[in-house]
């Protein structure tokens, strides 16, 4: 087992490669997921805000677009 971690004397190079790859990919995934969650929260917040404040505007919108 210790052989496995020593990597024939190249432990520093091999394990930092795998470690950095893991960290980079996990961080990118977490940042993206966090951004998605935040955007969902913001969108839901904005939609309830618009619904409660401007009930008329929602109805008027399809006419404005056509």
């Amino acid at each position: 087992m210790s052989n496995f971690f020593e990597m024939g004397g190249y432990a520093g190079y091999v394990w930092s490669s795998y470690g950095l790859a893991t960290i980079a990919l996990v961080v990118l995934l977490m940042v993206s997921l966090r951004g998605l969650k935040k955007s969902r929260r913001d969108l839901a917040h904005l939609e309830t805000l618009l619904k409660s404040r401007r009930p008329r505007r929602k109805k008027a919108q399809p006419d404005a677009q056509s």
């Binding site: 998605l36 955007s39 969902r40 969108l43 505007r57 919108q61």
Partner: peptide, 24 residues
């Protein structure tokens, strides 16, 4: 593919937010 889908969804939401804010 996974991160692409997450980021596209994120961007779609943000464009919708911008559109709603402009509508406001």
């Amino acid at each position: 593919v996974i991160v692409l889908i997450v980021r596209v969804r994120l961007e779609l939401n943000e464009r919708r937010i911008r559109a709603l804010q402009l509508g406001g």
